[in-house]
Design a protein around this nucleic acid. Structure first.
Lengths: 218, 218
DNA sequence: ATAAACCTGACAGCAACCTGAACAGTCACT
DNA sequence: AGTGACTGTTCAGGTTGCTGTCAGGTTTAT
């Protein structure tokens, strides 16, 4: 997934960024509301991790602006304010979840997985697709009963295709899901990953749309 | 679709042109209002992508002239002016949509598809036509349940016929939808594409009007 | 019957795409 | 520190599929 992290504590921000990047997500990290806000106008994120007390304002203001713009991106609030009133305010403002600092990074992963499940509109986290059985929670994929081991980048590509199954996913969109802003990739990385995925999960499941991108059929 | 792009930033203009051309549209790109204006008198566009701040004037002036000439072509405004007042001015002047720079090219595609849907007067983007089920958004066409893979040029031709279904579409109009200005096509390209389409979606769906063009029947 | 318009199979050029291989970096384990 | 397995990235050569063109056949109008 492409994730926007808004957190002004450098130590915590770095740790979060590293942790979720290691799980195969692309993370853009900003320390101020204005920077995050600017990035939101140019990039489509799947999830925002939002601290509340920031140097240039309150996170709930950003959240309110996001929701008033009818943007339904998932938002998890991260904050030290463990008072119930703030929690309620956050959820009222349209947050999807809430983590009280200090929190365990494993706990954060669990919330992210829960969000993912919601994105796939499937409570179980299991997905069946032709010969494939996909367990998003545990990152297990079975091809005709045989397990296929995917690397984290391979998962990221597959995930992106599944998010838009039956629709065409532009090559640039897949690239966006892999690399955070500024990472210049000049070669055919996406093609290579598609190739590897096909080798592992079967040739037929991913269709090439020449000149545009790829499509995963149900 | 045949699209007129008015944008004076060379980098952005090139990127937009390339992106939408790759989706099968024909793009004419001009950097000034006067050039765009001149082209409008000779060509029928389906959509205009209009920057506001141009070297020889303000885009809204062109828009106003277009609308006062009762030309109902779709217009999407592209501009860095993200102030509400400009947005309102643009929509009041008769723009169909509005994109604030910098924007994601995928976002632009989405808006173009939305415009397309409006042109077909069908909110769903789905179309049924005899044995054919057509999903314009995802570019999927089923012929008696069997998927037919169309190339982007083939889509462009089909799209043009659908836009005027039950009416006669002149051969030159189809050619205009395929090629931007200056592209010289000297042979019977349109006939060839009609032939290819018929092979893929069935002989009966496209009728030849000798000496004029073609017609797609409901 | 004739000419004009149209249809369609074939083909070459080209860009997009695929994929095996190479290689450096990372990680777990010793 | 050394080792081996694994991962991410790049490159190069091969393959595929799209495109515009043409030639020869077929249909249509007069």
């Amino acid at each position: 997934m492409r994730i926007l992290l808004v957190e002004d504590e450098k130590g915590l921000g770095g740790a979060i960024r590293e942790h979720i990047a290691s799980e195969g997500h692309a993370v853009d990290w900003f320390e101020t509301l204005s920077d995050a806000s600017a990035s939101l106008t140019t990039t489509n994120y799947d999830l925002i991790l939002l601290d509340l007390l920031l140097p240039d304002g309150h996170g709930l203001d950003l959240l309110a602006r996001i929701r008033s713009a009818k943007n339904s991106v998932a938002v998890i609030i991260l904050t030290a304010l463990d008072q119930i009133s703030d929690r309620i305010k956050g959820l009222n403002a349209g947050a999807d979840d809430y983590l009280v600092k200090p929190f365990d990074l494993g706990e954060l992963s669990a919330r992210i997985i829960a969000i993912q499940r919601r994105l796939y509109a499937d409570g179980t986290g299991m997905l069946t697709l032709g010969n494939l059985s996909i367990d998003l929670t545990n990152k297990i994929i079975l091809n005709e009963g045989e397990p296929a081991n995917l690397s984290s980048r391979e998962w990221a590509v597959l995930e992106r295709l599944l998010r838009h199954k039956n629709s065409i996913v532009a090559k640039s969109v897949i690239e966006d899901a892999l690399y955070e802003y500024g990472a210049e990739v000049e070669s055919n990385t996406v093609e290579v990953y598609i190739s590897r995925l096909r080798k592992k999960i079967g040739k037929t499941s991913i269709e090439t749309i020449r000149g545009i991108g790829y499509r995963m059929k149900v």
